[in-house]
Amino acid sequence: MAYNLTNLQVQLIEDNRNMRALVKAMLNALGMNSVRDYSNGQQAIDAHEVFVPDLIITDWMMEPVDGLEYTKFIRSNVDSPDIFIPVILMTGHTEKWRIMTARDAGVNELLAKPITATTLYSRILAIIEKPRPFVRTKSFFGPCRRRVNWKDYMGPERRADADGPAAMMGLGGKSGRSDVDDVERLLENL
């Protein structure tokens, strides 16, 4: 028997109108009838008085409050309606340092764009079926960041360390003309 997602209260936050409509339509089709959508984190915060979500699905890059800032608000602000609300972060940025940054903000699941019905559904099921305990350290509060066999974790202990961001991107320079010509030639054969 499948889960009954009808009454799950979902906040969907995405600044791209088309993407927002698409994801909302997918959530509705998956059986979630109580989905409220917002174009940034501030709108979602303002809505807490009337709508406390069971699940948050948010984009990363938005203004004035982005998805990470909103996650941090949920996890640590005194006005948070529930510091344990699961958060799924949608993002097209899948570089390792970004994933670590999202994880360290307290995100439960990462949903890489392009989003499909299958990947969206699988992240929601992961939240339902494989919830992780929460962890509090000097510098972190959120879902346990050790995804596999967290009870038997035998790797280096980093929980007491500060959680600094990883490598940043470098600065660019020249580009190759011959490669440009090659691509243009290939395009003629597409």
Binding site: M1, N7, L8, P133, T137
Partner: peptide, 26 residues
């Protein structure tokens, strides 16, 4: 230095009982 906080599975309580994905919904 750290504390593990087991939390009740509120989502499962709200949507369960059940298991796996629903192929029709998908």
């Amino acid at each position: 230095d750290y504390e593990e906080i087991p939390i009740p599975n509120k989502l499962l309580a709200k949507v369960g009982p059940g298991y796996g994905s629903d192929p029709v919904a998908l």
